[in-house]
Amino acid sequence: MPLSSAERESFRQLAADLPGVDLPVYQQFAKDPLDPIIGLGDPDAPLGFFGRDPGREEVKYGEPFIGSGGQIARKVLYTHLHGQPPADFEASRSLSQQFFWANTVPYKPLGNKAWSERVKKTFHPLMRRLLVEHWHGTQLITFGREAFLWFSIGQPKEERARLEAFWKSEDRFESSIEVTLETEEGIRKTLTLYPLPHPSPLNQTWYTRFPGLLESRIKMLLK
C-alpha cells in the first residue's frame, strides 16, 4: 500500500523546514530531498524492520536498508528464506517487497548523525500512522538504541521508564517487549519489539555478533 498523495505531501511539508538534511547526497543522485524514503513493502507481512535513518545508498535507490548495514541484515534474511546467500544486489533488493521497512525519520541526516529528539518528535505522528495503519503486522525488529527508544516518544512517564529499563537489560537482544502506539485519530495498535544492535562497523561491540543475533530472531519469527 503506497503512500497516498496527501500522506506524501504531509512528509514533504515537514521536510521543507527540516535543517540538517544531507542535501549534497540528494543532489549527487538527482533525488528530491523532500521525498521520504520509506519501504512499505507488503502491508500484510507479519514481520517488519525499523531502523534509525537512511544513508547514502538509501538516497540513491530510494528505499531503506539497502546500504552496508542493511545488506548485512538482508543477507541473513535471504539466506534463511532461500537456503543460500543472495547472488547479487538485486537478489537482496527483492526482499524490499516482502517485508515492512521504515526508519525513525525518512530523510538522510548530514554526517550520518542520529536525528535530534525534536526532529524525531516532529515526524513521530506520521511514522506512527504508517506503523499502525499501513502495516498490518505486529512483530517488529528494531536496529539500535535510537530506533528502539523511538517507541518511548510521546508515551507516559511510566511507559518511557519501562522501555528504557528494558533497553538497559543484558538480555534485551534475546527478549521482546510489547508497546502500544496510538494515532492522532485514536487508533491503537500493540506491537511486539525485538531489539537488536545497530549493524554498523562503528559499533565494534556488537558488529561481529549482529548476524548471529538476527539469525536467531528470524528463525524464531519466520518458522
Rank of each mutant, 00 (worst) to 15 (best):
94 S>Q: 05
94 S>P: 00
95 L>P: 02
95 L>A: 00
95 L>W: 03
96 S>W: 11
97 Q>F: 05
97 Q>N: 15
98 Q>K: 15
99 F>E: 10
100 F>I: 04
100 F>T: 07
100 F>A: 08
101 W>T: 09
101 W>V: 10
102 A>R: 00
102 A>H: 05
103 N>M: 07
104 T>P: 02
105 V>T: 15
106 P>F: 10
107 Y>P: 00
107 Y>W: 12
107 Y>S: 04
107 Y>E: 05
108 K>D: 07
108 K>S: 04
108 K>T: 08
109 P>N: 14
109 P>W: 04
109 P>T: 05
110 L>W: 05
110 L>S: 11
110 L>P: 03
110 L>G: 06
111 G>H: 04
112 N>T: 13
112 N>D: 14
112 N>C: 04
112 N>L: 14
113 K>W: 03
113 K>M: 12
114 A>N: 07
114 A>F: 00
115 W>E: 11
115 W>G: 12
116 S>Q: 12
116 S>H: 08
116 S>L: 10
116 S>N: 10
116 S>C: 10
116 S>I: 06
116 S>V: 10
117 E>W: 12
118 R>W: 10
118 R>E: 15
118 R>T: 15
118 R>M: 11
118 R>L: 11
118 R>Q: 15
119 V>N: 10
119 V>K: 12
119 V>H: 14
119 V>F: 09
119 V>R: 11
120 K>P: 04
120 K>N: 14
120 K>T: 15
120 K>Y: 07
121 K>H: 13
121 K>G: 09
122 T>W: 09
123 F>S: 09
123 F>P: 11
123 F>D: 09
123 F>E: 08
125 P>I: 03
125 P>H: 04
125 P>K: 02
126 L>G: 09
126 L>C: 11
126 L>S: 08
127 M>N: 14
128 R>Y: 07
129 R>I: 02
129 R>V: 02
129 R>H: 13
129 R>A: 13
130 L>V: 12
130 L>S: 03
130 L>A: 02
131 L>C: 11
131 L>V: 08
131 L>G: 06
131 L>Y: 07
131 L>K: 04
131 L>R: 08
132 V>H: 07
132 V>M: 09
132 V>F: 07
132 V>P: 06
132 V>C: 06
133 E>P: 03
133 E>H: 12
134 H>F: 01
135 W>L: 00
135 W>P: 01
135 W>M: 03
136 H>S: 14
136 H>W: 02
136 H>D: 05
136 H>A: 13
136 H>T: 03
137 G>F: 08
137 G>D: 07
138 T>C: 13
138 T>P: 02
138 T>G: 06
139 Q>S: 07
139 Q>I: 00
139 Q>D: 09
140 L>P: 00
141 I>S: 03
141 I>Q: 00
141 I>W: 05
142 T>F: 06
142 T>Q: 01
143 F>M: 13
143 F>W: 01
143 F>T: 02
144 G>N: 01
144 G>Q: 00
144 G>R: 00
144 G>I: 00
145 R>Y: 06
146 E>H: 06
146 E>Y: 02
146 E>A: 13
147 A>I: 00
147 A>E: 01
147 A>D: 01
148 F>N: 02
148 F>V: 01
148 F>Y: 13
149 L>F: 07
149 L>S: 09
